[in-house]
Write a protein that binds this DNA or RNA. Structure first.
Lengths: 345, 345
DNA sequence: TAAATTTGCGAAAACGCTTTCGCAATTTCG
DNA sequence: CGAAATTGCGAAAGCGTTTTCGCAAATTTA
């Protein structure tokens, strides 16, 4: 049974804490304390307030709260390329973690443009975000976004060059190791490595991991590209070149799923069977590729969700006052086995 | 020359409007008016205030502003699948448009989960967003997120089922027409259509557009799948099936770039040349696919950026008080010609 | 030149919340 | 049983803006 609208009821004003307090017959202060779980409120009073709040479907005004508390309850997510398939899973995982803790996320995509990035940083600070998360799509170190920022900052995937910052990034050495160990474990002896751009850290680190494992078993690569790109085209052409040179391989380790896909193409053109004759491993575990190939592609997953979640938790703690750790935190990669290395069908 | 820090200078408190006013020797009210371009302030006073603000590197506190004005200067972007390559360009374009107007964007990804979606809507309203944009990745109509919401809402890509809502979505009929006209213009006569799921509106609309153009020229498709998926696998298998049935075609129109890619594979396996023997057109203009194929894929672009920008502008106007239009606004698609339909090399 | 208008500015009241502090009533302690 | 501590609550002071309204001075109008 609703009270009839009075002429003054023009705007359906949302209930304020004052309304709740009045309805519960307590003061503003008590209502606030009751709803915020502060003590110095009796249980009966508290539930009376809670009931009133529910009845009025009261929701706290975050701007008032923020103004009063001096924090906004928001964080900024600054990414350099959202098309990229790296930033996105990280962002979503982070958003998830924050979301659970009642923090909302401002998203900014600087698109690799330094000017735009600076602009967004100012915008985020102007918004009084409580923390900033910087996400990139390469594991090469980047220029920090600034020193002595008034909020905690964490770098994800792309680490900061400044060791005093906290960065969280995948361990590509481990990734390289995992892939190599898997190939050796499935009996492969003659492994080739089709790399991404050799100047990029991701490619270099993987090469290190591969080298480590092979050295431990006293062997080495039968082939490795000295140049590299991330593209499918490069995978196809480099693989073709290798095969045409007569290099005999029984496994190809590719620095990305796209490269692997190109390699698979080149193999098929030559009627080389996968995985019977040659095993192929990719990197990134990008579903679109990995599930589209024939056979499905074994790949190294970089645990991006884990990165995002971890970063969010760190920031959350930092907002709570716990000082941020320093340095680079490495997160292990993960091997996902599919048909391109084993016939398990 | 900096003043030495006094012991009280513990926290580097940011400047408030009051600091600015004091520095400029005016009242709070005048300072506010000066910085907000209100009149009733002399030019000299205004610039005095502006100078002071600059000197103190003052930035307005958005929470205080929001509290006072009753609006937050934020909008919510609710998407159902961020992995999808549709939502993302829309979101970025929208963010761009808003960003220019000093509005920040809260991003939520409900992942197609209705419960999560309701949760996010509450969260956004609790945050007092000034507007909500709902983005999907299918052109099938969806349940509206709610009637009588306290903020304007616009649906992008995926339209609302309620005609009183404003929805902005690509015109796939036009898309189908464009593709068909292009094929006819390049001299193709025997066109096949490899569809996505026939129950989905995008596929159905395209079929309509294709049919229209063919009917106008008195012809019809030589082949059309009656079932459909969006996957590359489906493109490959349906194309193979068609060819194995002996259907003679000189053009294949595919409902997605992935389907087209599968079709290209099937064609190559049979040594059918593209575009000499058969022309292939895709949909979506997804760079990863379109540039990776051999030859590069002619495709229909759905102008997602345009969708996003338009939606943002509409919402912006709505926040400003202009009531939102109703109904579905169709945005034309765009043909992007590449090597799979013409030999322009 | 007196009256009417406009201009420039400031005091003060919101906006909705949190938090400090003080007071009374109650409980615990010696 | 009196002193000390604890508990439950409310008044009021912020938090940093915007905006309304009133007042004096300067300008325009008749």
């Amino acid at each position: 049974m609703k009270a009839p609208l009075t002429p003054a009821d023009q705007k359906p004003k949302v209930a304020t804490l004052e309304d709740v307090a009045r309805a519960a017959g307590v003061s503003l202060a008590t209502a606030s304390k009751a709803l915020n779980g502060r003590d110095r409120v009796s249980d009966t009073t508290r539930s009376r307030v809670e009931d009133a709040a529910r009845a009025l479907s009261y929701v706290r005004n975050p701007m008032a709260k923020g103004l009063s508390e001096g924090r906004s309850g928001t964080v900024g997510l600054l990414t350099s390329d959202l098309e990229g398939r790296f930033s996105l899973p990280i962002l979503m995982a982070a958003e998830d973690s924050f979301g659970a803790g009642q923090i909302s996320v401002f998203l900014c995509d600087a698109r690799g443009d330094a000017i735009r990035e600076r602009h967004y940083i100012s915008a985020l600070l102007a918004r009084r975000v409580d923390a900033i998360m910087v996400v990139g799509s390469k594991t090469d170190h980047r220029q920090p976004i600034g020193r002595d920022l008034p909020v905690p900052v964490v770098y994800v995937y792309t680490p900061s060059r400044d060791p005093r910052d906290l960065s969280i990034t995948p361990d590509n050495v481990v990734g390289g190791r995992l892939a190599t160990e898997h190939l050796l474990a499935t009996g492969r002896k003659r492994i080739a490595h089709l790399t991404g751009p050799r100047t990029e850290r991701a490619a270099a680190d993987r090469a290190v991991g591969i080298g480590q494992v092979l050295a431990e078993t006293g062997t080495s690569l039968v082939y490795e590209t000295s140049y590299g790109e991330w593209s499918e085209r490069w995978g196809r052409s480099s693989c073709a070149m290798m095969l045409d040179q007569g290099v005999a391989v029984d496994a190809i380790l590719c620095d990305s799923d796209q490269i692997a896909r190109g390699a698979l193409d080149a193999l098929r053109e030559r009627s080389i069977r996968v995985p019977e004759d040659v095993a192929v491993v990719g990197f990134d575990n990008w579903d679109v590729i990995v599930e589209g190939t024939h056979p499905a592609l074994t790949s190294i997953d970089m645990n991006l969700e884990l990165l995002g979640r971890s970063a969010a938790e760190k920031l959350f703690a930092a907002i709570g006052g716990k000082p941020l750790a320093q340095g680079i935190e490495l997160v292990d990669c993960r091997l996902v086995v599919r048909g391109s290395t084993t016939q398990t069908i």
